[in-house]
Design a protein around this nucleic acid. Structure first.
Lengths: 147, 147
DNA sequence: CTACGATCTGGAGCGAGGTCTAGATCAAGT
DNA sequence: ACTTGATCTAGACCTCGCTCCAGATCGTAG
């Protein structure tokens, strides 16, 4: 699982930002919103020190967000984890539901892709004809009826 | 490509909402934003009358939006079409760029899906073990407590 | 000691993409 | 004529997910 080659040394917020792709602003924001499982440790002076586990969790969060999970769901998931063992079924349900949504999303995107590809094809063909020596009738306004 | 079995009879905004999936609010909003190619016709009384071509365009818009094209790009595309023939190369470029973005999106989603699937697997296995007779540490009692 | 960059907090601000309200008008049924 | 429901306009408002400030503090390098 060693997602970040777990060096056991805690990381600063900037370092975590680098390796998660989240901004330091976003990291603080996530924390305020209760999206992290545990409270983040601090130095004597009050600076955040993230553990490897924190980073791993954040990397999961990033994937879930990328795939469109709303922060509210992420928060709920974090809460379940925070409460400790005993609610694994709920966690599974949450993830499973999301997984299905992701699959639907992929489906939808693939349909879109094919519609767009068809449109691209129409334009490409149009341009080919055009450049290849003007069978293009200048009196016809844009032959692409099913726009 | 009779997307809506083009009855040549113009449609009310409500009917268009039904067959595009956009709300009437969104339809008016899109119009204000200049996302439509032509100006929508009106009845004597001022009600919008959409043509089949309008609906076809909107259906394309819906696909482009679904696949994450920002309204700004949609607007630009509409402007190109509005200006008439002569800029097909630009239109093609716009669509082609979007198509590539959609493909990247699908890629990304598929990676997410596999990460999530792995997580789901972890929980499923955990639950299976748990229900099948507890290698699960019995000193950790069910985390349910009066919260 | 001094500088300088990174981080801290609380809260304001922002961009995208709509959504909703108010108050008026239109159109159709009875 | 009356009622009902769909539509009209302009503009205020909303959610989401951050982003950015101001002003203070920390921590390290010289």
């Amino acid at each position: 699982m060693a997602t970040t080659e777990t060096p056991a040394e805690p990381l600063s917020i900037g370092q975590v930002a680098e390796r998660t792709g989240l901004s330091v602003h976003a990291l603080r924001f996530y924390e305020r919103e209760g999206l992290l499982v545990g409270p983040v440790r601090r130095t004597a002076g009050g600076r955040r020190r993230y553990t490897a586990a924190d980073v791993d969790w954040l990397l999961i969060c990033v994937r879930l967000r990328e795939s469109g999970m709303p922060l509210a769901d992420l928060k709920q998931f974090a809460e379940l984890v925070r409460r400790g063992p005993g609610n694994e079924a709920e966690r599974l349900q949450l993830l499973d539901a999301h997984q299905r949504r992701v699959e639907e999303q992929i489906q939808a995107l693939e349909e879109c892709r094919s519609v767009i590809a068809w449109k691209v094809g129409v334009y490409a063909e149009h341009l080919a004809r055009d450049e290849a020596g003007g069978l293009w009738d200048p009196t016809v306004r844009d032959g692409l009826r099913p726009s």
